[in-house]
Nucleic acid binder design. Structure first.
Lengths: 219, 219
DNA sequence: CCGCCAATTACACAACCGTATAACAACGAG
DNA sequence: CTCGTTGTTATACGGTTGTGTAATTGGCGG
């Protein structure tokens, strides 16, 4: 006759965060399919039933996890600017380099992103979360570009932001999926050269201290 | 007493192709999770048991489907070059423009790709399929770049190919995930300008006939 | 036209999924 | 120290999954 499993109570915030963190880990490792209520509960150190005490349905937990993920990424991007150097060029250079270097580039993030992709098309709420955060990132980039000492109207700024964002996304994608296909720092160097070429400025020599000071991964 | 369901026999090749096609459709729509044996069989117009007659396990079917997908994408890329215009610049321009326009850019492809991503990290066979086809695409691009009338050593060519490929991948990604965020042709124009800027050539005016002659989607 | 073989259907099974509900116990209020 | 609240565990249920196996029947060789 096994005794009932001992436990101790936690604050609601702590429990929700733990469950969300566990869910994100599992999604990153094996996609949404691997993030079952039982597995999430096991990783969070609780029993499955507790999940439904904090989240009415599993979709609720999924949405909360995706929100957390996107907010974390936006936070990481903004953090890259906080201890950034002075001047438009170095700031943009640091931002671009950080976006294609670890810890932003890693198999976990791309795994997470891919794991949620299908639910994006199915669930309007998740699609809204995604669009908002994606455009926030691009606007941040566009503002950095607008600060550069060069002439460009609004339409040109939009195109430039889309193009530079594509370079970043593409390199992020390739570096994350094929981590061994590129030398350390190679992606950052390519990103700086390419973004500089697109914008018509010299970014590669604008960066003060390679190897770059990388931001801490939040969460 | 319902009679036994009537059927007629098909060649092995036809049946395998039908099952793979059905699996790909389902993966594109709802990820690997939606591609269950019963659902695949239903869409292919057979009963679930038949799947195991042609594929020893479901992973076998998954691998076959992914191979088919990657081969199809490579084929699409190569096809874009067949009826391409003369001259290095127009050829590259046509290739780049096609890669960021429909039918290459669409929610289905990115859904497919994302659906398989997690199995990529788990299954060595799938990872090999992926790497092979990815590098094949990049090599094709690199060869087009090498034909341009400009000076560049091998290392520079590699960096250029990675950068241009990133632009293409990034725009492909954004255009596929957010189809309504860009005007028709906008991505192609941005791609030509950006790739041209990176390589130091004028691609935008190298394209003879916009709107572009798009390749037929294969399969 | 007939008989055979394998392509196909039909059914069964254990494992797992998300969800529902009841029983228990940790811990602050009094 | 006791009691009540509620965070937590335990258990159950219907549905679905991949897989294994037996029963049929379509269509070709003779």
């Amino acid at each position: 006759m096994s005794a009932r499993r001992p436990y101790h109570r936690e604050s609601e915030e702590r429990r929700r965060d733990d469950l969300i963190a566990a869910a994100l880990e599992l999604v990153a490792e094996g996609g949404l399919r691997a993030a079952t209520v039982r597995e999430i509960a096991a990783r969070a150190g609780v029993t499955p039933g507790l999940i439904r005490h904090y989240f009415a349905t599993k979709d609720d937990l999924t949405r909360a996890a995706y929100t957390k993920l996107m907010q974390g990424m936006t936070k990481d991007s903004a953090a890259a600017l906080e201890n950034a150097p002075e001047g438009p060029l170095p700031r943009l250079a640091g931002f671009v380099a950080a976006a294609v270097s670890p810890p932003v580039v890693d198999p976990v993030s791309v795994g997470l992103w891919a794991g949620f992709l299908h639910d994006l098309r199915r669930d309007a709420t998740m699609r809204e979360i995604h669009t908002t955060n994606y455009l926030a990132f691009r606007d941040l980039l566009q503002r950095l570009i607008a600060d550069l000492p060069r002439a460009a109207d609004e339409a040109q700024l939009r195109r430039d932001a889309i193009a530079c964002n594509a370079v970043i996304d593409g390199l992020w994608l390739e570096g994350s999926v094929l981590p061994d296909a590129f030398a350390p720092g190679e992606l950052a160097a390519i990103a700086l050269t390419s973004v500089g070429a697109i914008l018509g400025v010299d970014l590669a020599s604008a960066l003060p201290t390679p190897p770059l000071a990388l931001p801490e991964r939040n969460s």
